[in-house]
């Protein structure tokens, strides 16, 4: 069984429950690792959540001079190992999605680890558990494929046929392939 994180930005209501919940996870040291931002508050109340994509070949790990960012066997990209991290912040600048955070006091980088202690056991991470709008979901890989397919079909009905090249721009991204075989 593959479980993945699935984000649908337009569902977000900006309540930031995911951030409050993130602080509750094991090893998160009462600091949130995810983001909820306004697109532009002057224009609209649209907000969007953002969490780590758990890339297969993470740019953050590639730019780390200390080789401190490790990937678990399940594919979760962990925070920089505290003993290795030299605090250069290359990861925050290398990440295409602006995910890693840095604590200057404690000299360590921390980032979304999909609540490793929960997902390892097949339990939904805190952010997806509490998200009242289902903007963040922890679902089966197949369910995600189904949702994406439906979005593409919908776009066809709307008469806005996506081209082959940009088809995937029209459907929400899925985040973090995760298997707990």
């Amino acid at each position: 069984m593959n479980k993945i994180m699935y984000l649908e930005f337009e569902r977000c209501i900006g309540c930031r429950a995911c951030q409050a919940a993130c602080r509750e996870c094991g090893d998160h040291d009462a600091k949130e690792r995810n983001y909820v931002d306004y697109i532009d508050f002057t224009e609209s109340r649209q907000t969007f959540p953002m969490i780590c994509m758990q890339c297969k070949d993470p740019a953050c790990a590639r730019v780390c001079p200390a080789n401190a960012i490790q990937i678990t066997e399940e594919g979760v990209v962990l925070s920089a190992m505290e003993e290795k991290c030299i605090g250069c912040r290359n990861c925050t600048f290398g990440c295409p999605f602006g995910i890693p955070k840095f604590d200057f006091e404690k000299n360590k980088m921390y980032k979304c680890d999909m609540c490793y202690d929960r997902t390892r056991e097949g339990i939904s991470p805190m952010c997806a558990s509490v998200c009242p709008s289902d903007a963040i979901r922890f679902i089966d890989f197949d369910e995600m494929q189904e949702l994406r397919r439906r979005r593409v079909q919908m776009n066809l009905i709307e008469g806005k046929k996506p081209m082959e090249g940009n088809k995937w721009e029209y459907v929400p991204e899925f985040f973090g392939v995760y298997s707990d075989s």
Binding site: C15, R16, A17, Q19, A20, A21, E24, S124, M126, S129, V130, C131, P132
Partner: peptide, 20 residues
């Protein structure tokens, strides 16, 4: 701390930041 109650019929483990 707090743990979501996934099986509560009305809210399914969902919480707002106040609840968390």
């Amino acid at each position: 701390g707090v743990e979501p109650r996934y099986d509560w019929v009305l809210t399914r483990g969902k919480m707002c930041p106040k609840g968390v």
